[in-house]
Design a protein around this nucleic acid. Structure first.
Lengths: 329, 329
DNA sequence: CTGTTAGCGCGTTCAC
DNA sequence: GTGAACGCGCTAACAG
């Protein structure tokens, strides 16, 4: 059973390929009812499915968008990717994904790969980094130069419309809220210094503390994932600290686990807060105080930004959610 | 800045398009060192990137594989999708994803869409359902008829190589282990009856109990997600039950949350077990007793099965992991 | 080794 | 309204 082409359909319907094309796929030109009917029947009988890449080649306009994330297994990206996928589906688009494993080089490689695939748009999801972004930017510009649309979720550093979470503001508000709970000495699990998201959250939190006239927090670097949070919390001198802020929820989860192993009660002895409000982590005990980001919305918005010619960057608000992990009895 | 084609490169290098093609993209024919050099230089200067869809059209063999999951935001699928993505990347393939939202119709639609995209292979990840699979199977067969490769993760019901988790065996072993802990009266949060995975786990667990000479468990249906577990556990008469088995981890998490709201201590008053051993849920408190599936491996294997001409279905073992959520003091 | 000639599957002028 | 050409970007025979 060979793959059936438009020619096969045309032949079977006794019309020219042009007519078959007009009948099956839209066109400004119209087709006689009788012929259209028989073309459609022939197509159905043969199980014809248009060759979309070929169609895209002829039209020079395809229906696939690219999505590049750091780590699909990380619930932060999973939720966003899911939203992007659904939103794309609603618009008749299909999504190509790539996971970089947080390697900036692979992010660049993916943009090139997606350009090679002639995707209509590329979504770059995840924190920008301080370092090599120059080459990424070149690659992005090259892609845009060919008519490709780009948007990102993170920081507006590539000159493309981006969905920027209020990292600084959210962390700052969190600091105020925690200070309001009576905490005075803080430690921050700050993640990797080269991740701008990590920096923004760290500095926002510090600013909030400073505004409250509170002492400088201890800041410790580490990986941006669960194990990073675990490692950082495992080796930290907590003697003078009453509250720990991990710059994202999965790190916070790792931290809580490490504290438990050290016999430190949360929130009894030490309060812990995170950032993101990952949905699948909401049933954690103690429930994690965090800063909520509308993850799914962010994914949808990013797709809109990429597709809309007139789009500009937007900030999405972050909302402090106080839960049990910072409760003071 | 128009999109640069192979012709542009050829012209700039002063060679024919064929030569440029042979120099840049592999071919069995070889090219003179001098010409190859100048072609490569021209390509670099122009920032040439081959048009992969066009290339695929000419070669009639592309480098994209399709991946269809139920819900990308569900960590079960997220972990598998991540593994597939990475494995694909290693082989120079790119992945197109679709999330069906557990709607069998959309699964069928995705297979058709991926056929239209002329992807080299399609991976169907997730439990098969009892109902409409006939039309799915037709669609799959049509795709395979055109040379497309298919594999799935779940049950071997479509006549394609599949990675089948040992749902029955795993649940059965879990029942034995829990009985060994002294539990005698069980309830099962069985998920949706039309999901075969849910059925397999339920029946495996029942079989295990029967082998131990234990009474029939109470079985309650519900959604296959966190809220399903929550709802089921919230409205269940637990008076005579000492252990709850949720057919997957996310349901178990929802159940534990519901029990907490009802003031029921886990595992003190009621033990709870799940299935899957989702990595991001391992830090839950109490730590969830579960049945571990090698999720990432399963994703990789599925890709291998789809690509390998001689592949046959494989069962992947499931391992009982006893943790605190079923501890008896 | 290299250039020329055909397609791959489809959309789109252009005439009829 | 409908069909005959040509082109999208690239690879694969076929000749030199």
């Amino acid at each position: 059973m060979r793959t059936v082409t438009l020619d096969d359909v045309a032949r079977r319907a006794g019309v020219s390929r042009a007519t078959a094309s007009r009948a099956l796929n839209g066109s400004n030109r119209t087709v006689g009812a009788a012929l259209r009917e028989s073309v459609e029947r022939a197509a159905a009988e043969l199980g014809y499915e248009p060759n979309l890449p070929a169609q895209a080649l002829a039209r020079s306009a395809g229906n696939v968008v690219g999505l590049v994330v750091h780590d699909l297994a990380d619930p932060y990206f999973a939720v966003i990717a899911d939203a992007v996928t659904r939103a794309a589906d609603r618009r008749g688009l299909v999504v190509m994904v790539g996971a970089t494993g947080r390697d900036p080089e692979r992010e660049i490689a993916y943009v090139a790969a997606l350009r090679a695939q002639r995707v209509r748009a590329v979504l770059l999801v995840g924190s920008r980094t301080t370092g090599t972004s120059r080459r990424l930017r070149d690659e992005v510009d090259r892609y845009r130069g060919t008519g490709g649309r780009v948007a990102c979720v993170g920081q507006d550093l590539l000159g493309v419309p981006t969905v920027a979470p209020a990292n600084h503001e959210g962390a700052r508000a969190l600091a105020h809220a925690l200070a309001g709970l009576g905490h005075r000495r803080f430690a921050i699990l700050g993640g990797p210094p080269e991740l701008i998201t990590a920096r923004e959250r760290t500095s926002g939190f510090r600013d909030g503390l400073a505004e409250q006239g509170l002492p400088e927090p201890v800041v410790v670097a580490g990986a941006f994932d669960r194990d990073g949070g675990h490692a950082a919390a495992a080796s930290l001198d907590l003697s003078a600290v009453s509250c720990l802020f991990a710059v994202n929820d999965v790190m916070a989860v790792g931290a809580v686990a490490a504290l438990r192993e050290r016999g430190i009660d949360v929130p009894g002895t030490l309060a812990v807060a995170g950032f993101d409000d990952i949905p699948s982590l909401r049933d954690l005990v103690p429930a994690l105080t965090t800063v909520r980001l509308p993850l799914a919305d962010m994914g949808e918005r990013a797709l809109e930004l990429a597709l809309d010619e007139t789009a500009v960057s937007v900030q999405v608000p972050a909302e402090v959610i106080l839960r049990d992990s910072t409760r003071r009895d």
